[in-house]
Simulated assay, not measured.
Amino acid sequence: MLRLLVFLSLSVLSCATSRAGETREVVDMAGRHVRIPAQIGRVYGSSPPATLAVYAIAPELLIGLNTPFKTDEKALLRKEVVDLPALGSQAGMGRPLNPEEVLSRKPDLVIAWLDGLEDRAKTEESFAKLGLPVVFLKLDTLADYVPAYRFLGEVLGRKQRGAELADYLDDALTRVAKAVGDIPADKKLRVYYAEGPDGLATDCDKSFHAEPIRLAGADDVYHCEPKSHMGMETIGLEQIIALQPQLILALDPNFARSVASLESWRNVPAAKTGRVVAIPRAPFNWLDRPPSFMRGLGVQWLANLFYPSRYPLDLKAETKKFYRLFLGVDLSDADYARITR
Rank of each mutant, 00 (worst) to 15 (best):
L4N: 13
R19L: 15
A20Y: 14
A20M: 08
T23W: 11
V26H: 03
G31T: 09
G31V: 09
I36T: 10
A38E: 13
A38S: 15
V43M: 09
S47V: 01
S47P: 08
P48H: 03
Y55M: 06
F69H: 12
R78L: 01
V81W: 04
S89A: 15
G94H: 07
L103M: 14
K106D: 11
V110M: 00
D115N: 14
D119H: 10
K122D: 11
K122W: 06
V134E: 02
F136I: 00
L137S: 10
K138C: 00
P147Y: 02
L152Y: 00
G153H: 06
E154A: 11
E164K: 13
Y168I: 04
A172L: 05
L173F: 00
V176I: 12
A185K: 13
D186A: 13
R190Y: 04
E195C: 03
T202W: 06
D203Y: 03
S207L: 07
F208G: 02
A210D: 11
R214V: 09
D219V: 01
D219R: 15
C224Q: 06
S228Q: 03
H229Y: 09
M230W: 13
I241Y: 04
Q246V: 07
I248Q: 07
P253F: 06
S264Q: 13
T273I: 12
G274D: 11
V277G: 07
N285P: 10
L287Q: 00
P291W: 08
R295C: 04
R295E: 09
Q300H: 09
K320R: 14
V329Y: 07
I339G: 02
